[in-house]
């Protein structure tokens, strides 16, 4: 059933990583990506791997989730690996057959690139695993706050994102209901040719759109009734506070970043 699809990958928990301030986590994730790309050799990358695994362990996210986040990018990883193996031409020859030339440097780069991509995905998916979508949106709003000065509608964008996220499960449930109802009237969604299938979608999309507009209307009225008028002068129910935990997280990341740079210099 449609309900089984998980949108957003938030995995509730109470670890130190979960409790960190979303803003700090967001910034640290960006720092992590920079760190990953400043690692020049395998040694530096090993530091990054250690960092990723350590955070994963602290956050107590089941290791199976790590694999799950990698699944969608598996083809990308594969293509990267193949391209590097076949198209890097310098270094010592390992294998040659007609136009195919594989060098040790090619293999090295392939491994390096693959490990880097995997680290990138696993590391950054930690953010979405340990932070609820709403918190991420809030964090983005806060971090983009300065842009308000140049009349960029930060609050509005954040509100749009929040509302969209909020309604995804509702609309999935609604779709499920409409599909059941039309099936009960004998629609054949799962059989027939492509055009028939597309035609079969109409009885689902039209009621779905109608109800989305209805919901949007109701929500707008409800917000209006509560005197919502945009971000100006609005205070928050949940104040974001960076605490000792966040300072510690920053130091922790800084130490690893320093280690990566040190390794870079040492292995030059």
């Amino acid at each position: 059933m449609l309900k089984d699809i998980t949108i957003g990958q938030f995995f509730p928990g109470s670890s130190a990583v979960h409790k960190m301030d979303a803003r700090v986590k967001l910034v640290l994730t960006i720092v992590f990506i920079v760190m990953l790309f400043s690692a020049k050799g395998m040694a530096g990358l090993c530091v990054c791997i250690a960092f990723t695994l350590l955070i994963f362990a602290i956050s107590r996210i089941p290791p199976a989730m790590m694999l799950k986040s990698l699944k969608p990018i598996a083809p990308l990883v594969l293509i990267t690996a193949l391209l590097n193996i076949f198209f890097v031409k310098d270094g010592d020859k390992l294998f040659e057959w007609k136009f195919i030339l594989i060098t040790d440097k090619g293999i090295d780069t392939a491994v390096f690139m693959v490990v880097r991509i995997i680290c990138l995905i696993v590391g950054s998916s930690l953010l979405t695993y340990t932070t609820s979508p709403i918190d991420i949106t809030d964090a983005i709003e806060r971090l983009l706050g300065p842009l308000k000065r140049v009349k960029f509608p930060v609050h509005e964008l954040a509100m749009i994102m929040t509302i969209a996220l909020r309604f995804i499960p509702t609309l999935i449930e609604e779709t499920d209901k409409i599909i059941s109802a039309q099936k009960a009237r004998g629609s054949e969604l799962d059989t027939g040719t492509l055009t028939e299938k597309v035609k079969g979608m109409l009885p689902i999309f039209i009621p779905l759109f109608a109800s989305s507009f209805r919901r949007a209307d109701e929500l707008a009225v409800a917000m209006e009734c509560r005197c919502y008028h945009g971000g100006e002068g609005r205070t928050r129910m949940k104040q974001m506070k960076a605490g000792r935990r966040d300072v510690f997280g920053c130091i922790f990341t800084a130490v690893f970043f320093a280690a990566v740079i040190a390794v870079n210099i040492l292995t030059k």
């Binding site: 609604e174 209901k177 409409i178 109802a181 039309q182 009960a184 009885p203 689902i204 009621p207 109800s211």
Partner: peptide
């Protein structure tokens, strides 16, 4: 024949 709750939302 099955009529769901709030069947008016299935009219299309």
């Amino acid at each position: 024949g099955l009529v769901f709750q709030y069947p008016e939302y299935q009219l299309f």
